[in-house]
Each structure stands twice: as structure tokens, then as C-alpha cells.
Design a protein around this nucleic acid. Structure first.
Lengths: 143, 143
DNA sequence: CTACAAGTTCAAGTTAACTTGAAGTCAAGC
DNA sequence: GCTTGACTTCAAGTTAACTTGAACTTGTAG
């Protein structure tokens, strides 16, 4: 069993973040008699998964949902992990496609001088975010 | 000269956001006798540039810096705009490269079961964010 | 046994990019 | 002339993902 500082060091994720993840139900811990958290080794893989998913652009809430799909009765194996992440490929591809589109717009659209909001498809209002209530919009990696 | 509602409609950017941009110095306006904002047509291109840059992943502060490089004495032409954006290609390419890396990790790393924080280079703590003070970390599109 | 490091909880702070609300002014149609 | 809608300012709220601080308890090295 690992102490929170151990998990923090091995994962690179701050202790405060680990407590936060626990509060949000992404990971769980047992308690030593003292009340201190004790983690099983498997938590490292779970944290790795979280970090990985975040880099891909998923929010903690989405990650949380994904994680509930893991079997509760047995320890998850490679097959379980890989099934979870298989759908993400599409997402990554979409994002790459958008970036390619933006990139070509950089030379074609701005370069040619057509960068105008009404004529250029690259800065199309319809496709933009801004319709999900208040708060900052994360244009990049949004979804 | 355009009213704020005109600019908003044509750009898809909310009036409140336009005022916010002005407050941050990204755009400017003249005032009608009434105190109402009046924008020259050229603001549309400037706003388009801002929207475009955001999608690429630049923060408003970065965009602001870029915009100050525009000539203040004369109206900016295509050449000016394209010079500004030329450096971004590198950035886009880096981001695409990371996504490709993550994508292959999805099948190779998670798929093969090696997703562990200490052995797998994909969830490398060193390369992660989290070292820029408090506040949320935008893993994706960060930089 | 005594420091002092490490852990705990809970509330409040932080950042970005805006939005919302209050309170009031201006303009346009009938 | 009046109502309704657009505009203005300024302060405060919103979201995500944590961090920080206060106040306190445990664990451990010397």
C-alpha cells in the first residue's frame, strides 16, 4: 500500500490533486488507523489513465464517466483499459483535422487577404463555442 | 461606421466580448456624440484575426502582443496580417505531433498494457504543466 | 521525548475569458 | 410624446481544475 506522497512522486500529480480526484470520485483510497490515505498499487495506472486522457482533451467529468465503465468486481486488465480508450482515436483525428484546416488557412486565407468573417469559412461563427453557458470557453481542445 | 451590434452580428462575437476586448486593448473604437461605440470596417478583420488565433490556441494576452506588432501609422494590409501569423505554423505542427504521439500511445501503450507512470514516456511528469502557479491547467492547447 | 515533516479537513483563492445584472442614458418607431 | 430596444459603465458571477491557508493530528528521526 502506498502513501499519498508516494503516489504523488510516482505520478507527478500533486497530493492536493489526488485528494481532489478522490473527492470527485475518480480514485479511491482506504484509510490507515490514523486516518491517513492508503492506496493500492493499481491506483498508479488509474492516475496514469487520467493524465493521459487529460492530455487528449477530456474533462475530468468525462474521464470520470469513462472510469465508471471499468469492472467493479475484478481488477481491470489491459483489455479493459484499451476498450475505454479506443473511441478517443476519433476525437484525436478530428482535432488534428481542425488543426490542419487552420494551418492551411494560415497561408491561404490570411495570406491571400480573404480573412473576413463573412466570406472565410475558417472563422465561421456557427461552428464556434460560446453556447454552453457562462465561463471561459476553451477554444482549443474543446468539445 | 458600425455599431457594436453590427460588429457582433457580422463576427459572431458577443457585444460583451467586444467590450471586453476593447478593455484589454485588442480592439478600439471611436464614440458617437451619445457615447455609443462606433467601429471602422477594419475592426472586422481584426476580430476575425482574434477568433482565428484563439482557435489555434493563443491566449488573449499573446494575441494582444501580436497585434501590437501591426503598423500604427497605416492600415494593415494582407502582408502585415500574414507576417503575424507565419510563426504559428510551427506551433500547430508541434500540437499535431503531440496528438499523433498520444494517438499511437492509445493503441501501443495502453493497448499493450504498459501504461504505467514510471515506464511509459507518454504520461511523462516532466513534460507536464502544473508549474505555472495556481488556477486550472489547460493541458490541451497549452503553451 | 521532542522536534518537525507529513497527513487530514474545510473553506477560500486563482486564472482565463467572458457573461450577467443593476442602474441609468439614448434612439427610433408609432 | 412615449414606449421599447439598444447602448453604457461597473461590479460581481461563472467554470474548470486545482492550489493555498488555517488549524490540527500523526509519524518519525535523533
Amino acid at each position: 500500500m502506498l502513501k499519498i506522497s508516494d503516489v504523488s512522486k510516482r505520478s507527478g500529480v500533486a497530493s492536493s490533486a489526488l485528494r481532489f480526484y478522490e473527492e470527485r470520485g475518480l480514485i479511491s483510497s482506504e484509510r490507515a488507523g490514523s486516518g491517513h490515505r492508503r492506496y493500492p498499487r493499481s491506483v498508479l495506472r488509474r492516475v496514469a489513465f487520467i493524465v493521459f486522457a487529460q492530455r487528449i482533451g477530456l474533462s475530468l467529468e468525462e474521464i470520470s464517466e469513462e472510469l465508471t465503465k471499468l469492472p467493479a468486481d475484478r481488477a481491470p486488465g489491459r483489455r479493459d483499459w484499451s476498450r475505454l480508450s479506443s473511441q478517443w482515436t476519433t476525437r484525436i483525428d478530428e482535432r488534428i483535422a481542425e488543426l490542419e484546416r487552420l494551418k492551411s488557412g494560415l497561408t491561404e486565407c490570411i495570406g491571400c487577404g480573404c480573412l473576413s468573417l463573412d466570406r472565410c469559412a475558417l472563422s465561421n461563427p456557427e461552428d464556434r463555442v460560446g453556447r454552453r453557458g457562462p465561463g471561459p470557453r476553451f477554444w482549443m481542445g474543446d468539445r
